[in-house]
Amino acid sequence: MAKFSKKRGKSSPAISTASLPDIIFMLLFFFMMVTVLRDSDLKLSVNTPEATQLTKLDEKSLVNYIYIGRPTQQYQSVYGTSPRIQLGDKISSVDDIPLFLEQHKVKLPEAKRSRITSSLRVDGEVTMGIVQDVKTKLRKSNQLKINYSAGTRTDELD
């Protein structure tokens, strides 16, 4: 026993921290990969409704977002209070949708273009009129895969 303890006692007890930067870098790269910097700031207040039959959208690059809602307080003087459409970071009208879709489409390789999904993030308080106009425009632009963005509902309906 004495022999063992003697040997151990001789070695230096300090743990080498030389590999610490490598570990940190590894973590850093992980978070850099999964980070999506918010590219468009919302000018509309969008509070999506809740639902139960949800599907997850996995490939982010294949999704384009269309926001519909009322302008937030700071933009109400410019855009009014009635529901508007936001594409990217601009308040737009229904007629801008085909161009917006095309701009998203050209960035993707040909093979993936059929899998593009339009995610409609619509405020629950908005009436269907404007949503219907957007849907009609999407159909006319042959963008048929859409997703009504919604949160998860846990409570029962009445």
Binding site: L57, L120, T136, K140, K145, I146, N147, Y148, A150, G151
Partner: peptide, 11 residues
């Protein structure tokens, strides 16, 4: 991003 996936009919 979760939501209800819908396929619209062609126009």
């Amino acid at each position: 991003d979760k939501g209800i996936l819908v396929k619209l009919p062609p126009w």
